[in-house]
């Protein structure tokens, strides 16, 4: 069993309830070391949640009706972003079969790191751009949309905005 899988089992247990503490734990530090990045740590997700929930654009043009959970898969790690009334209510690592979502975004660690750069490189600068290079051009290390296309297009802007806000949470980059 690979180290990541072992850690996932431990984290599953640790995170049977969503992030309830802002205090970093030893497991958080292990996770950071394993991924060699500060993306998707406990603190990182907490910061991200706050950025999304205080973003003015998520509250206008009907985006406060956004209530579609979506999954984010970074390499081997998956997280469920639970949403209600345009706000992130929970972020659940390694969601189990009691959870539900219709759309998601997946990609390699490299793809996400490029996506989250302060000024992201061409074709990994936004979800549709990145998905196009995966789905139409067949290129590697770009993001891919998963799940229901209908649900995605019904919620395109708030999902897109939520993903772009990862750059703000990560390094105060452009959104």
């Amino acid at each position: 069993m690979r180290l990541n899988s072992v850690l996932r089992l431990i984290l599953d247990y640790r995170y049977d309830s969503p992030f309830s503490s802002a205090v970093p734990t030893n497991l958080d530090r292990i996770h950071m070391t394993t991924t060699e990045t500060d993306i998707a740590t406990h603190e990182w997700w907490e910061r991200y949640k706050e950025v999304v929930n205080t973003d003015p654009e998520m509250k206008v043009r009907g985006h406060d009706h956004f209530d579609e959970n979506f999954a984010v898969t970074i390499g081997d790690e998956q997280y469920l972003i639970k949403v209600d009334a345009g706000m992130i209510t929970d972020i659940v690592p390694n969601p189990d079969m009691n959870t539900d979502w219709a759309v998601g975004v997946e990609g390699s660690q490299k793809a996400w790191e490029e996506f989250m750069q302060e000024n992201p490189p061409a074709h990994n600068n936004e979800i549709i751009a990145s998905n196009y290079r995966t789905a139409v051009r067949g290129e590697e290390d770009h993001l891919r949309l998963t799940g229901s296309n209908k649900t995605f297009f019904q919620n395109l802007r708030p999902i897109q905005r939520s993903l772009d806000l990862m750059r703000v949470a990560h390094n105060k980059g452009g959104s």
């Binding site: 009907g62 600068n125 936004e126 549709i128 209908k150 297009f153 395109l156 897109q160």
Partner: peptide
């Protein structure tokens, strides 16, 4: 290829916003 999509005139999609923001990432940041 790839942009002739039925979602751009689907009754259950906000075609105004989707027609616009499906192009958001086509612009340089």
């Amino acid at each position: 290829p790839g942009y002739f999509l039925d979602w751009f005139h689907h009754p259950q999609v906000n075609t105004s916003e989707v027609s616009a923001y499906s192009c958001w990432g086509l612009m340089a940041p």
